[in-house]
Computed example of a mutant assay.
Amino acid sequence: MILEVAILEVKPDLTEEFEAAFKTASTIIASMPGYISHELQRCLETTNRYILLVRWQQLEDHTIGFRQSPKYQEWRSLLHHFYDPFPVVEHYESVLFNS
Rank of each mutant, 00 (worst) to 15 (best):
S69G: 05
E4K: 12
F82H: 03
Q68P: 03
L8G: 09
G34W: 02
E60Y: 08
V54F: 02
F22D: 00
R55V: 07
I36G: 00
Y83F: 14
H91I: 01
I28E: 02
Q68M: 03
E39N: 13
D61Q: 03
Y72Q: 09
V54R: 03
I28G: 01
M32C: 06
I36W: 00
A21M: 08
S37M: 11
Y83P: 06
I51G: 04
K23D: 13
H62D: 09
F18I: 06
D61M: 01
F66Y: 04
E16Y: 02
I51H: 03
Q73I: 07
K71P: 07
G34C: 04
A30C: 10
W56T: 00
N98P: 01
I28P: 03
S94C: 14
I7W: 07
P12R: 05
S31P: 03
P70D: 02
R76T: 06
S94H: 08
V5W: 01
H62M: 08
V54A: 09
A25N: 08
S94T: 08
A20G: 13
F66C: 01
Q41V: 13
P12C: 07
Y72H: 02
S69R: 00
I64D: 05
N48W: 01
I29G: 04
V54W: 04
N98R: 14
P12F: 01
A6D: 04
H81Q: 15
T63G: 08
F22R: 09
F86I: 10
E9T: 11
I28H: 00
F97S: 15
R76L: 05
E90T: 15
V10I: 03
I2D: 05
I28R: 02
V88F: 10
V89G: 10
L59F: 12
Y83S: 08
A20N: 14
R49W: 11
E9I: 12
E17L: 05
L8R: 05
C43D: 13
R42T: 04
T47M: 10
G65T: 10
H91Y: 06
S99N: 15
K11P: 05
F66I: 03
Y35N: 06
R67T: 08
Q68L: 15
E16A: 13
N98E: 11
T47C: 09
V88T: 12
Q41F: 09
D84L: 09
F18N: 00
S77R: 12
Q68N: 10
E17P: 07
H81G: 12
K23S: 06
S94F: 10
W56V: 01
E90H: 14
E45H: 12
Y83I: 08
R67D: 07
H38F: 09
T15L: 03
M32H: 11
E17R: 03
A20D: 15
T24A: 02
V88C: 09
T27C: 06
F97I: 15
A6N: 07
Q41A: 07
L40A: 00
I28D: 02
D13F: 15
T15V: 14
F22Q: 10
L59E: 14
Q73T: 11
L79W: 01
V5N: 09
V10N: 00
Q68K: 12
D61N: 11
M1L: 09
E90V: 15
Q58H: 13
V89R: 04
H62R: 07
S26H: 05
V89Q: 00
F82R: 06
C43I: 04
Q73P: 07
P12L: 10
F82W: 03
D61R: 01
Y92N: 05
L14V: 04
E39K: 13
E45C: 14
F18G: 01
Q68S: 12
